[in-house]
Design a binder for these strands. Sequence first.
DNA 1: GATAAATTCATACGTATGTTTTAAATGCCG
DNA 2: CGGCATTTAAAACATACGTATGAATTTATC
Lengths: 229, 229
Amino acid sequence: MSSGGKKHNPATTRLRLLDAAERLFGEHGYNGVGMRALTEAARVNLAATAYHFGSKKTLYAETFLRRFRVVNAERVKQLATADREARGLPLTVECIVDCLLRPAAQVGLEHPAFDKLVGRSMLAPPKFLHAYLKAEFEPVVKLFIGALERALPAVPVNILNLRLGLAMGAIMMLGMQMSSIRMKRDPKREAAILKELVRFAASGLASPPATVGAELALVRPPVKTKRNA
Amino acid sequence: MSSGGKKHNPATTRLRLLDAAERLFGEHGYNGVGMRALTEAARVNLAATAYHFGSKKTLYAETFLRRFRVVNAERVKQLATADREARGLPLTVECIVDCLLRPAAQVGLEHPAFDKLVGRSMLAPPKFLHAYLKAEFEPVVKLFIGALERALPAVPVNILNLRLGLAMGAIMMLGMQMSSIRMKRDPKREAAILKELVRFAASGLASPPATVGAELALVRPPVKTKRNA
DNA sequence: GATAAATTCATACGTATGTTTTAAATGCCG
DNA sequence: CGGCATTTAAAACATACGTATGAATTTATC
């Protein structure tokens, strides 16, 4: 770059872009929003995206990571707290599921636009997102699967993996419904719905396996990585 | 149209378009596929979409309806059969859920591309799809909610509605996972996974309500229609 | 207050978008 | 044969796309 340029507010441009991206990508999908519409909604120059994020794709990825980083950190923290307070005893399934879903519900309620974005783009993320998401989620999933294994020794781990996926589908569905309803926030109602969601997911996770396990051998085929315990 | 034109095969053009649309829209989303790419993949003239479907949007909608019509018809049929064989007794939850999920799993396994399309576009369908989908799904949902009410008199109907939505999220999640795995079809394994899914969903549906019900009063706000019982 | 770095700006580039319009070419039915 | 529906190729339509450029302007540092 040469010199020069005009900065109206110090660093709000990044945030304005992220907020507009969260809302618009959630409403119309990645390919449904052009840079013109996006930058105008953010009241920002067309070239600002390239300057602050490098490309539209990177902005999209950052829109996810900004929130998921805090969600996943909170998940890990709540699970650790619960684990500490249990003093060696295995956690209940409802407790584990609560640690998993509460932080997501929290962020979803505070940012309904993000809920919509997740529902729209998380089930089938564009290929360029895979790397970002894998890095962000893998360790968290590993942690919770471990806790579930200890809480449900009777359920084979591959079935736990399958069921955890189903539970994540459920929460996305709920997020979509909630975010498209739009009403005044009501802590009592929100707590009740979260409780319902936790109950639903925990119920499914803890139910006696429907299969002997051998027939399900490959719900997920073994991922071939170098370091694969 | 003037005159002229060349017809290679009698009426395969429609089908080739629908098949290519199912695959490509599932892989890249509605806005991620251009008419040029689509018609070339279908080995069909660029103008064929306009001729047979009128527009890209209509083709997209027809891609959904072609399969959902058979899925929903099969759902209704299986529920009716089960109801007849029960001779007045209320159906079990697992049976109802089986009637709901088996036809979808069937079609999903036979057409993995459609599974992908559903997972990508069903949670947050483009606005122009709403009308089509509502007309296709509303009566079926009403039917199954009725059956669930009879099977689970202890669970308030608004909670049933919520949970049914969660269950649909779970099956979409499963469809996505399955369709992205890709392996030789294995009837035993497929049956086992369907059983797992049914178990998961039925478990969640039948669990004792976590809330007293009043606090949840408006999971879905009352839809204001003219004819609203 | 000067100098340099960071940021914003307006604009332009090349390509792709969905749709429509030409025209001619083909198969089918009566 | 004459008419009809379908398919094709080719081109044009106006608009939108994501990104790059280089200067203008603001902020930071001395």
